[in-house]
């Protein structure tokens, strides 16, 4: 299959999936109990006129499909509407909160890739007590939910040692990095454990292949054998996990940002869900779905580069 045909087919698939997701997201908010108007009035008793005015302003009285199509039309033009809670355009709101989330996810991703691969590599190559220690540590990492990790990290590094702030985002790059270190760790630890285990078992599997013995028999130095013939051959598996890693980061960032009071998109999603801020929740959910699909699309594009036996449009065959 040519690249162009593959890309076109995947783009069409993605558009269809996004459409279905948009319907589900909109429908879920519509079905959820509670009325945004009452949140807007925040418990104050309002005159029926005021209530009607609000409902009319946000088109809350229209039939479901009309609301959905109006929203979809706006989204397609790049307009996510106005936040009910903050009374500003959703896009402005997102733009102001995106940097901290992006930085947080990027830091966590870097931690996952660097530490996860290093631990998996070390466990597979060293074996013995080192391997057992890493296995135990990653078991704990995988078994600890991120909100528990958040509390533990805050307790140890903020309250006890006072090395890092326990909450907030900070301003300026250096301060943000400092503020987001603990959140990034809380976000990354589960995926570090996952990636370490996947890398370890994939490397051990490849080590049993004959071509690795053959490489040694040909005088290839041991480090090069591990790098060029063992680790290299696990890249397909690691890359396939990349899609899963990014989507998990995006979802868990909601919990972590809330736990550390990071003013990012995840925290906004959490707040907006409790206040029934429809437009914001819908916009963020849709963006998360879109990012997830884009990442998987990129993985599919990169896979043939990593494994020549995989051609565009097919997965599997990677050993």
């Amino acid at each position: 299959m040519t690249f162009l045909r593959f890309a076109l087919r995947r783009l069409a698939e993605m558009a269809a999936t996004l459409l279905a997701a948009s319907f589900l997201i909109f429908g879920a908010m519509y079905l959820a109990p509670g009325n945004p108007a009452s949140f807007l009035l925040s418990g104050r008793s309002a005159s029926p006129e005021a209530f009607r005015a609000i409902n009319a302003q946000y088109h809350l009285n229209d039939p479901f499909w009309q609301q959905y199509l109006r929203w979809l039309g706006q989204v397609l033009r790049g307009d996510f509407g106005r936040s009910i809670e903050y009374r500003t355009p959703v896009s402005t709101l997102l733009a102001s909160r995106l940097p901290s989330t992006l930085l947080l996810v990027a830091m966590a991703l870097a931690l996952v890739v660097v530490i996860g691969l290093a631990l998996g590599w070390t466990g597979a190559v060293r074996g013995g007590a080192t391997d057992s220690t890493i296995l135990v540590a990653t078991t704990f990492a995988v078994g600890t939910p991120s909100f528990v990790a958040a509390v533990l990290l805050q307790g140890l590094f903020s309250v006890k040692l006072g090395w890092f702030p326990s909450s907030g985002t900070g301003s300026g790059p250096a301060s943000m990095l400092w503020h987001l270190t603990l959140p990034a760790l809380a976000l990354a630890h589960y995926l570090i454990g996952m990636l370490a285990r996947v890398t370890r078992s994939a490397m051990l599997e490849v080590m049993g292949h004959e071509h690795v013995t053959v490489a040694r028999s040909r005088g290839v130095p041991e480090r090069a054998v591990i790098r060029r013939h063992v680790f290299r051959n696990t890249l397909g598996t690691v890359l396939t996990m990349g899609g899963l890693i990014v989507s998990t980061l995006l979802i868990c960032t909601v919990l972590v940002e809330t736990a550390f009071s990071v003013n990012g998109v995840g925290q906004l999603l959490d707040l907006s869900t409790t206040t029934k801020d429809f437009p914001v929740v819908q916009a963020i959910s849709l963006i998360i779905v879109a990012i997830f699909m884009i990442v998987n699309f990129l993985v599919d594009l990169l896979l043939p580069l990593v494994d020549p036996r995989v051609t565009l449009g097919t997965r599997g065959g990677a050993v």
Binding site: H209, E210, H211, V214, G219, R232, N233, P308, R309
Partner: peptide, 23 residues
């Protein structure tokens, strides 16, 4: 390593298994 690179070399039974398919 010198022996394996320069002095003695082995030809294996199944070349499909003996050569890394990714390189």
């Amino acid at each position: 390593r010198h022996l394996r690179t320069h002095t003695a070399a082995m030809i294996f039974q199944d070349p499909r298994a003996a050569i890394n398919p990714l390189r």
